[in-house]
Each structure stands twice: as structure tokens, then as C-alpha cells.
Amino acid sequence: MLAAYACHPAHSRGRRHPEVPAPTRTEYQRDRDRIVHSTAFRRLVYKTQVFLNHEGDLFRTRLTHSLEVAQLGRSIARSLQLNEDLVEAISLAHDLGHTPFGHAGQDALHSCMHDWGGFEHNLQSLRVVDALEERYPDYNGLNLTFETREGILKHCSRAHAEALEQTEPGGVGARFLRREQPSLEAQLCNLADEIAYNAHDIDDGVRSGLITLEQLDDVALFTRFKAEALAAHPQLGAAGLRRRWLYESIRRMLSAQVYDVIDHTRAALQAAGVASPDAARRAGPLVGFSPAMREASHVLKRFLFRNLYRHPQVMDTTALAQQVVRELFAAYLHTPGEMKPAYAAAAQGAEPAQAARSVADFIAGMTDRFALREHHRLTGRRLLDT
């Protein structure tokens, strides 16, 4: 049922360490299973999106977000005859390299690593599956297929792409130097990621009380489906049913975005006339919203940035979370022996860049609550409640 432009597991560019094929699973199914069983994947349950782990049990985490991305991605992939298993593998792995405390932690760690190449969470996700996971006797990492690794590396600076090209000529860094696109499955995961976090940040934002249904009237995309939901179910206007009104509005918005992606992408694929995955990579971006939906999505993102991500309460927590990361980095860099043995061994006596990278690896792998416990252990202070 796969289209000619879809990635077929039998035609994969393979793994860095050759392996005998599994008797009952395709290569991409095998990738997905390795990701699900990885240590880094389990940690995602205690890594946050916008709201920190201690702020509530029902807010999204990196794990629930990844599952939502996978669900959306598979639904769209099925309609476009793309490879669902590859979409699922990329979706489940795309946030493995994220730090504790969401984007706040990432920004702080990037600042700490300024003199040693910075910190990119997409590159860190690749580093997790290529090197940091330790599950197999003959190699580090998960030894995933090229196509899954390509999809994980959503963004990459030119400097880091050049470094990847030196160690893996023609590998996952090459497309950034050639200015090509990743597979259609990877393009789809990028868009499913955007669709998912816009929707769940509305939900979490209203649940938290930081934004209201009335404020969302400024967002035409949401207001349309809010009105449709009420017209179809007038009882949702009652005070006790407003949360159901929110859910129904989000559900309708998600469906409309999914259908828009399917229709626009089908037209783009037909116009481009691509007949293979490599032809799709060379054709430019093909998976996307229609121009009208793209603009509506931008309006929604601007609203969330202004009213949720930059809300004073979120900013106060963000500042404290960044302080935790900065102080952890300084403490471990000064005394590497405070880290777990494997990271300490890699940092002690190493060149400054290698030592700093080991510290960054250790911190990036932390959950929110472990980072807070470590900070308290090393400083004696509690900046955030656990």
C-alpha cells in the first residue's frame, strides 16, 4: 500500500553497524521497538513541555507529546500512503535529546555550552540514539536506520552538519550542506509536531488558568471551531460543560488541520511528480499546510507565545529552571566526580570541550525532578518545589 515516494524498509540505506534482518519485523518497526525500550524514552515521562513536572499531573510531558505526534503522524501517513512505521519511529524519538524543564532548560544549556559548540536538542536526540544509549554488546547507541536518524535530526547548524559529514560522509548531515529536504515521512513528523503542541498548549494553558476561552476569541482558527462546537451542541455553553466545549473545539481544529495537510500535500506531490523517496528529497518541501492554514497556524502560535509562553507566571518558573541548569553545569564542570561514574570518567582529565560535552550529556538526560534533587544535593537550596 506504500506510494512510490514513500520510504520502503527493504530499500533502507541501512544501519551504521550491519545486522541480520529481524524475521518478523521490518527495519522501521525494529527501530520503533528499540526506541520504546530505550532508557531515554522512559525518561520523557518526567520531562516537561511548558509546565514543569511538579505543577500538575495532567499537563503534557515530553512522553505524552511524543505519543500525540505519533498518532497524528500515523493518521496522515496512512492517507498519503507514506510509511507509518517510519513516521512512528521518528515521532517517538524526536524529543529524546530534550533537556529537563522544556525550552527553558535547553536555552540555559545552550548558553552554558557557548564556548564549546552550543547545545541543539535535535542534535542531542541523534547523539542519544547514536552514542549515549548503552544496551547492546557490540556498539553504543541503538543502531537505527539512516531514515529514522535522518528524521530525528530536524534542524542542524552548518558547523554541526560539517562535523557530522566528517565522521559520516554522505550521512545524516549531508542534506543540510546540500540544502535538501529529509524524507516525506520526516517532513510529516515535523508538521505533526507543530500541530500537536499548538493543540495541547491550548488545552494545558486553559487547564492552568493562564489563558481563557474568551482570550482565544482573538484566534480566528480556534474561534471558528469553538463556534461550530457550540452550534452543534448548545449545552456546552453551560458552566459545568466548558471543559467539554474546549475539548470539542480542539478536536474539530485538529481534524481540520489534518485534512488540510492531506489535501495540500496530495496536490503538491502530484504537481512535483516525484516517483521515489530521493526525488522527494530533492523536490523541496512537499508536506505542509495550505497557505491559508499556514497563516492561521502562525496566528495561533503568536497568541500562545504572547499569552502563555511569556506569561509572567511561566517566565518566573522559567528563570528559576534556567538557574538550576546553569548552577548544575558549573558544579559538574568544576567537580566532574559528582556526576554518575560513566560521565565523570569521560570528563575527568579530558580536554575542556570534551569535559563540557560530557556535563551537557549528563544534564540533558535528566528528568525535571532528578535535576532538582541534584541541585539541592549540590547547593543545599530548593529553587522549585518537587
Results as ranks from 00 to 15, higher is better:
residue 249 S to Q: 03
residue 49 Q to M: 14
residue 271 A to S: 14
residue 135 R to L: 12
residue 341 P to E: 11
residue 275 A to N: 09
residue 345 A to I: 00
residue 333 L to W: 04
residue 134 E to P: 02
residue 152 I to S: 01
residue 109 L to K: 04
residue 339 M to P: 02
residue 324 V to K: 10
residue 179 R to D: 10
residue 166 Q to R: 13
residue 16 R to F: 11
residue 82 L to S: 04
residue 266 R to G: 09
residue 102 G to H: 02
residue 186 A to S: 15
residue 104 A to F: 07
residue 229 A to C: 09
residue 242 R to Y: 01
residue 227 A to G: 11
residue 184 L to H: 00
residue 308 L to W: 03
residue 191 L to F: 00
residue 356 A to T: 03
residue 215 Q to R: 15
residue 2 L to Y: 06
residue 279 A to C: 01
residue 21 P to M: 06
residue 268 A to P: 02
residue 143 N to F: 12
residue 55 E to M: 14
residue 259 Y to T: 12
residue 239 A to M: 05
residue 133 E to D: 05
residue 313 Q to E: 15
residue 280 A to I: 06
residue 236 L to M: 07
residue 301 K to D: 10
residue 310 R to P: 03
residue 174 A to H: 07
residue 263 D to K: 05
residue 156 C to M: 10
residue 322 Q to I: 13
residue 194 E to H: 08
residue 73 G to M: 02
residue 189 C to K: 02
residue 360 A to P: 00
residue 107 D to A: 14
residue 6 A to H: 02
residue 366 M to L: 15
residue 152 I to Y: 00
residue 9 P to S: 11
residue 339 M to D: 03
residue 144 L to E: 03
residue 274 V to L: 02
residue 343 Y to V: 13
residue 333 L to C: 12
residue 93 A to C: 12
residue 177 L to S: 03
residue 257 Q to L: 13
residue 234 P to W: 02
residue 83 N to V: 06
residue 203 D to Y: 04
residue 129 V to F: 04
residue 363 I to M: 06
residue 83 N to W: 01
residue 251 R to T: 09
residue 157 S to G: 10
residue 36 V to N: 05
residue 353 A to R: 05
residue 67 L to Y: 09
residue 156 C to Q: 04
